[in-house]
Simulated scan of single mutants.
Amino acid sequence: MDGTVEHGALMDRVYRWQRRFGFYDATRKYYLVARDPMLAGLEPPAGGRALEIGCGTGRNLVHAARRYPQVDFHGVDISREMLAAAGSAIARAGLRSRVRLAWADAVTFDPARTFGHDSYDRIFMSYAVSMIPQWRQVITEAARRLAPGGEMHIAEFGDMAGLPPMTKSAMYTWLRWYHVTPRADLFDVAGEVARAIGGTSEDRRLHRGFSWISIIRRT
Rank of each mutant, 00 (worst) to 15 (best):
M1P: 08
D2M: 14
V5K: 12
V5I: 13
E6K: 13
E6T: 12
M11I: 02
D12T: 06
R13E: 15
R13P: 04
V14L: 15
Y15S: 04
R16H: 14
R19V: 05
R19P: 03
R19C: 05
F21M: 11
G22N: 10
F23D: 12
Y24C: 00
Y24L: 08
D25H: 03
D25Q: 04
Y30V: 10
V33K: 15
D36R: 07
A40S: 09
P44Y: 06
P45D: 05
P45E: 06
G47F: 06
E52K: 01
I53S: 03
G56W: 00
T57G: 00
T57S: 12
N60D: 14
N60Y: 01
L61G: 01
L61D: 02
V62G: 05
A65K: 02
R66L: 12
R67T: 00
Q70K: 15
Q70G: 07
V71Q: 03
F73V: 01
H74K: 00
G75T: 02
E81T: 08
E81M: 00
L83D: 02
L83C: 02
A84R: 14
A86L: 10
A86K: 02
G87I: 08
S88M: 14
R92L: 11
A93C: 10
A93Y: 09
R100K: 15
L101N: 01
L101C: 04
A102H: 07
D105C: 14
D105N: 15
T108H: 15
F109K: 06
D110G: 06
A112P: 07
G116V: 09
G116K: 12
I123A: 07
I123T: 03
F124W: 10
S126V: 03
S126Q: 05
S126H: 04
Y127M: 05
Y127T: 00
S130A: 14
M131Y: 02
P133M: 10
Q134A: 13
Q134I: 04
Q137A: 05
T140R: 08
L146C: 09
P148G: 13
E151K: 09
M152N: 03
M152E: 01
G158Y: 00
A161M: 13
A161K: 13
A161Q: 15
G162Q: 09
L163C: 11
L163S: 02
P164L: 10
P164R: 12
P165T: 00
M166W: 15
M166R: 15
S169H: 13
M171F: 07
T173C: 10
T173Q: 11
W174N: 11
L175H: 04
R176W: 06
R176E: 12
T181H: 14
R183E: 03
A184H: 10
D188W: 08
D188L: 13
A190Y: 03
E192P: 06
A196G: 12
A196C: 08
I197G: 05
G198F: 05
T200A: 13
S201P: 02
E202K: 13
R204D: 10
R205A: 10
L206C: 07
H207V: 12
G209D: 02
W212D: 01
I215R: 00
I216L: 08
R217E: 06
T219A: 12
T219G: 13
